[in-house]
Nucleic acid binder design. Sequence first.
DNA 1: AGCCATGCACCG
DNA 2: CGGTGCATGGCT
Length: 151
Amino acid sequence: MSAEETFEKELTANDVGETNSHQAGIHIPKSQKDLLAFLPELDPSVKNPDAWLVATDDAGIEWKFRYIYYNNKYHSDRGTRDEYRITHMTKALRALGASAGDTLSIAGVPRSGKIRIKIRRDDEPETRDTSASVETPQPVRVKLAGWRKVH
DNA sequence: AGCCATGCACCG
DNA sequence: CGGTGCATGGCT
């Protein structure tokens, strides 16, 4: 049987759309070969190949995420992108109450295209204010290391 | 309004 | 300089 694997990533402000960027998704560090192997295969010879994922949260709700490989760096003259991304997560992240600094867990059987997502907020010391006293325009640049695999 | 695709900024 | 976060413009 293909055992399930779990990955986690600390969400950045940009990932959750807290920085005015309509990214609608998160970024995936290329260093995470395991995660890339866990996700569906994308053909590098094709420009911006994509695949759809089906994610289920704790509430049993199913979300559809778009897993893309932006590689115009190798397919366009002045392309600069060479990265993986998962988009279409805005609604899901909102429903899960995700915010920058939270940890997103992804579990599932490798290559199945189906995952289970979960939000874990342990890196939050006291950032619980309900934007009532958000006068501090803190440079919310999260310095994260990316994903980590949990065997 | 939300997403796609891409460029730029910043940091190690 | 590569990789990742941030941001923008255009298209749907």
